[in-house]
Amino acid sequence: MTKIACTLLVDDDETANYLNESLFRRLDATEQLLVARNGLEALTLINRNCPGRDCPTLILLDINMPVMSGFEFLEAYSQLELGQRQSTVIIMLSTSQNPRDMEKLRQAGIAGFINKPLTKKALEEILAEHFEQD
């Protein structure tokens, strides 16, 4: 199984981050795991790390967060230079079933959406779909 170079978890829920982190660890799915507590932190981190070795190739993005929500982050992210965006895969991860959110997700131009919680099966599917090396 391939390993992700750098994964960024963006969630204000520390328990969720803790659980996801332990899942990644158990599956040994990523070289590097970064955590941001909201969209703004994530944006700062990307600005600092990208492009570069520590630039995340997978971002698991929560929707509802203080300071900067997932959607606001996506908006800001789309304004970044192409070089900073590279080939980053962004997956939305949320408990929200609000139809308004679903509609926005469809228009957000992201790689995928996963209902919380992130399960072993879902993570394996992400790896298979986006990070399988032929």
């Binding site: 829920d13 328990t15 969720a16 659980l19 332990s22 158990r26 509802n64 949320s94 408990t95 929200s96 079933q97 609000n98 919380k116 919680p117």
Partner: peptide, 24 residues
């Protein structure tokens, strides 16, 4: 209800996940 279900959902999912981790 959306907000409440979302806000309730996250912790219960976390609990579920934490139990799994704990059992592990």
């Amino acid at each position: 209800i959306y907000t409440a279900s979302h806000d309730l959902k996250a912790p219960i999912l976390n609990i579920e996940g934490l139990i799994e981790v704990l059992l592990d």
